[in-house]
Lab assay of single mutants.
Amino acid sequence: MIHRILNHSVDKKGHVHYLIKWRDLPYDQASWESEDVEIQDYDLFKQSYWNHR
Score class of each variant (00 low, 15 high):
19 L>H: 02
11 D>G: 05
23 R>F: 08
4 R>C: 13
45 F>E: 04
17 H>C: 14
12 K>V: 11
44 L>Y: 12
43 D>H: 11
7 N>F: 06
15 H>L: 11
18 Y>S: 05
12 K>E: 11
31 S>F: 00
17 H>I: 13
48 S>A: 15
8 H>A: 01
6 L>W: 00
18 Y>I: 00
7 N>Q: 12
28 D>G: 11
50 W>A: 02
24 D>N: 13
50 W>S: 05
34 S>D: 09
24 D>L: 06
17 H>W: 09
38 E>G: 10
14 G>M: 00
38 E>Q: 13
43 D>Y: 10
41 D>Q: 10
24 D>V: 06
16 V>Q: 06
15 H>S: 13
23 R>L: 10
2 I>D: 05
11 D>Y: 03
51 N>S: 13
33 E>Q: 11
26 P>G: 13
49 Y>M: 04
46 K>Y: 02
29 Q>E: 09
50 W>G: 02
39 I>W: 02
53 R>A: 10
50 W>C: 03
13 K>D: 15
21 K>E: 10
30 A>H: 05
6 L>E: 01
39 I>Y: 10
32 W>P: 03
36 D>L: 08
22 W>C: 03
48 S>V: 14
48 S>L: 14
25 L>H: 10
41 D>V: 02
16 V>N: 00
28 D>A: 15
41 D>S: 07
18 Y>F: 07
47 Q>V: 12
48 S>E: 14
26 P>H: 09
1 M>Y: 15
39 I>S: 04
30 A>W: 07
30 A>E: 04
47 Q>S: 13
52 H>K: 15
27 Y>E: 10
25 L>W: 06
26 P>C: 04
35 E>G: 10
18 Y>Q: 00
32 W>F: 00
49 Y>F: 05
4 R>H: 12
32 W>E: 04
14 G>E: 00
12 K>Q: 12
51 N>T: 14
33 E>W: 06
37 V>I: 10
35 E>R: 01
50 W>V: 03
7 N>H: 09
43 D>P: 08
26 P>T: 08
19 L>V: 02
53 R>Q: 14
49 Y>E: 02
22 W>V: 06
46 K>E: 04
47 Q>E: 13
40 Q>Y: 07
39 I>N: 00
7 N>Y: 07
19 L>G: 05
48 S>Q: 13
8 H>V: 01
47 Q>T: 14
23 R>Q: 12
38 E>V: 10
28 D>S: 15
37 V>A: 15
32 W>H: 03
34 S>V: 06
3 H>V: 05
5 I>D: 00
20 I>D: 01
26 P>F: 04
6 L>N: 03
53 R>W: 13
40 Q>V: 12
36 D>S: 13
27 Y>A: 14
3 H>A: 12
14 G>P: 04
3 H>N: 09
7 N>M: 06
18 Y>V: 04
26 P>D: 11
19 L>S: 04
2 I>V: 06
9 S>E: 12
31 S>D: 02
53 R>D: 11
32 W>T: 00
30 A>Q: 01
27 Y>C: 11
25 L>N: 11
37 V>M: 15
51 N>D: 14
38 E>D: 11
16 V>A: 06
38 E>K: 13
17 H>T: 15
7 N>S: 12
